[in-house]
């Protein structure tokens, strides 16, 4: 394993899960990354099926929403979730 990467749990919910056909996968991600780079990786290489809903999704890392310009430090096993529009209630 590349020393600069960590194994993360990539989670998909609702419409994202249906489009991609699975709820979870294991991925190697850079240990440090910003939100824009993470989104480019997720919607580009890792889950291109999500392209059509990209603009309506947000990302949560470690069960916290990330800010648009946040610098992130990923730890091994951390949950990175693709969260489509919320519709609870």
């Amino acid at each position: 394993m590349d020393a600069g990467t960590v194994t993360c749990r990539l989670l998909f919910f609702a419409k994202a899960r249906e489009l991609i056909g699975r709820s979870e996968q294991s991925v190697q991600l850079p240990r440090t990354i910003n939100t824009k780079e993470l989104e480019a990786l997720l919607f580009g290489e890792l889950a291109p099926e999500l392209g059509p809903i990209r603009s309506s999704c947000v990302i949560a890392v470690g069960q916290e929403y990330v800010l648009p310009d946040q610098q992130l430090t990923l730890s091994p096993g951390i949950e990175v979730a693709v969260i489509p529009p919320l519709s609870g209630g």
Binding site: I83, L86, S87
Partner: peptide, 14 residues
């Protein structure tokens, strides 16, 4: 509470 639940809590309905 209900306004914020709808805005921030990751729950999804179909």
């Amino acid at each position: 509470a209900i306004d914020e639940l709808k805005r921030t809590v990751p729950i999804f309905k179909k």
